[in-house]
C-alpha cells in the first residue's frame, strides 16, 4: 500500500524532465531511508504506478527526490501536478549500488540521458563523506546541451567536490546553443578518462545500447566484468518480485536488481547490454 506524500518542490531540469521533491504526510518519517541505486513506486490514482529511481541525498532524510522524464500515463499525470498536490509512494525497492564494496576505491560513474538520476545519490554521498571513496570520476552524456539534467551541478557544484572529476558530452549541439564540453556519444569521453581498472568500480545507468558500448569500451581497457555494475530498467507492476513483468531470465530486476554486475548480466537473456 502506498504512503501519502505531498509535492514540496518541482525543479525543471530539461524540457521533458523534472525533479520532484516529496514530503511524506502520513504518520511515518517525512523522508525515506534508502540505499543509493534503489527505486520507489510512485502512484497516481486513476493512472497507476511507475518505478522511478531515487535521486535524493542519502544522508538527508527530510524528503524524497525523484527525477522523472515524461514518458507515460503516470509520469504524464505527475507532470500536470503542482507543488502542494498529493501522490502515493511506496518503497524503497531493489538492491542499490554496491557502495560498501566500493568504499575506499575509485568510482567511475557513467550515465546517459535520465540515467543520471540513480547516480546522483552516489555523488551526493561522496560530497558528504569525503573519505568514503578514494576518487569519483563522472562521465555523463546527453542528446543535446538542453537535455543535460543537473547541468548546473555537473558544471559547477559537483566539479568542486574534492577528488572528483566531471566529464560531459552531448551527441550534437543544435545551432544557437552553447557547449564547452565534448561532442559525441558518452564513450568518446573514455579517451580523456583517468580511471584505471586497478582498484576501481564502475557504476552505469542509461539506455541499454549506451551501456553495451560502454561495457565493450571498458572491457577493452582492461576492466573486468565483475567490477562493472549496470542499473537495468524494465516494466514493473509490483516492485517486489511478484508480478513477473521485470524478469530477466530467472532474475527479477525489481528484487535481484535493478543493479547487476556485468558478470551476472552476461549470463542473462533478453537484454542488449551483452554484445552480439
Amino acid at each position: 500500500m502506498p504512503r501519502k506524500a505531498v509535492i514540496r518542490e518541482i525543479t525543471e531540469e530539461t524540457h521533458d524532465t523534472k525533479t520532484f521533491t516529496f514530503d511524506f504526510i502520513d504518520s511515518g518519517p517525512r523522508g525515506l531511508e534508502f540505499v543509493a541505486g534503489q527505486f520507489a513506486m510512485i502512484s497516481i490514482l486513476g493512472y497507476g504506478e511507475a518505478a522511478i529511481s531515487i535521486a535524493s541525498d542519502p544522508d538527508d532524510r527530510s524528503g524524497l527526490d525523484l527525477t522523472v522524464r515524461e514518458v507515460g500515463a503516470v509520469t504524464g499525470a505527475l507532470f500536470r501536478l503542482r507543488e502542494g498536490d498529493e501522490v502515493g509512494i511506496r518503497g524503497p525497492y531493489g538492491n542499490g549500488w554496491p557502495l560498501t564494496q566500493a568504499e575506499g576505491k575509485r568510482l567511475l560513474l557513467i550515465s546517459g540521458g535520465c540515467g543520471c538520476g540513480t547516480l546522483r545519490p552516489v555523488i551526493l554521498s561522496h560530497k558528504n563523506n569525503p573519505r568514503r571513496f578514494r576518487y569519483v570520476e563522472v562521465l555523463h552524456g546527453a542528446r543535446t546541451p538542453g537535455d543535460v539534467i543537473y547541468r548546473k551541478d555537473y558544471e559547477e557544484t559537483w566539479r568542486d567536490i574534492p577528488d572528483t572529476r566531471v566529464l560531459l558530452s552531448v551527441d550534437k549541439v543544435p545551432a544557437g546553443e552553447t557547449w564547452s564540453h565534448s561532442v559525441g556519444v558518452v564513450t568518446t569521453l573514455f579517451d580523456e578518462m583517468e580511471t584505471e581498472p586497478e582498484g576501481s568500480i564502475v557504476l552505469m545507468c542509461g539506455p541499454e545500447i549506451m551501456m553495451k558500448f560502454s561495457v565493450l569500451g571498458l572491457l577493452k581497457r582492461g576492466f573486468s566484468p565483475d567490477q562493472i555494475f549496470c542499473s537495468m530498467e524494465r516494466r514493473m507492476r509490483c516492485g517486489v518480485g511478484l508480478c513477473g513483468h521485470c524478469q530477466l531470465g530467472s532474475k527479477y530486476v525489481c528484487r535481484d536488481g535493478p543493479v547487476f554486475s556485468y558478470a551476472e548480466l552476461e549470463k542473462l537473456p533478453d537484454h542488449i547490454v551483452r554484445g552480439g
Binding site: 486513476g46 493512472y47 500515463a73 504524464g76 499525470a77
Partner: peptide, 9 residues
Amino acid sequence: IKGAALGRD
C-alpha cells in the same frame, strides 16, 4: 472517454 478526460491513453 475516461482516459481522454484524465489526459492519458
